[in-house]
Amino acid sequence: MSITSDLLRGHTDTIILRLLLNRDSYGYEINKYISEKTDGAYELKEATLYSAFRRLEENGSISSYWGDETTGARRRYYSITRQGRAVYEQNKTDWEEAKTILDELIKEG
């Protein structure tokens, strides 16, 4: 499992970008989606998630804005930028390539 989660963590940015392609979202919603989609097998730590947000925001892949919740703390929403879409496409291509290579190297026979 630890190798799996290491591998997955390496693609946190891409996963986040993918989710933001559909619509703007906030931290908990993104994490919940990841957890549900993987039947609870994988869930990001909040800390990992925010590190990724900061990183993506810094390189211009996403932008953020505060929601106008009337009750409780404000949520911070993220939306993907045009550059973010390009990064996503690039990462996806890279991943496909890596997958092919790994399959070739690891498979038996």
């Binding site: 906030y26 931290g27 908990y28 919603e29 994490n31 919940k32 909040e46 925010y50 919740e69 409780g72 703390a73 404000r74 949520r75 911070r76």
Partner: peptide
């Protein structure tokens, strides 16, 4: 401050959920 507020909002949402 932003990070704290963000973390708080998400944590409370998760708790409610």
């Amino acid at each position: 401050n932003d990070l704290r507020e963000e973390l708080l909002a998400n944590s409370l949402s998760k708790y409610d959920d």
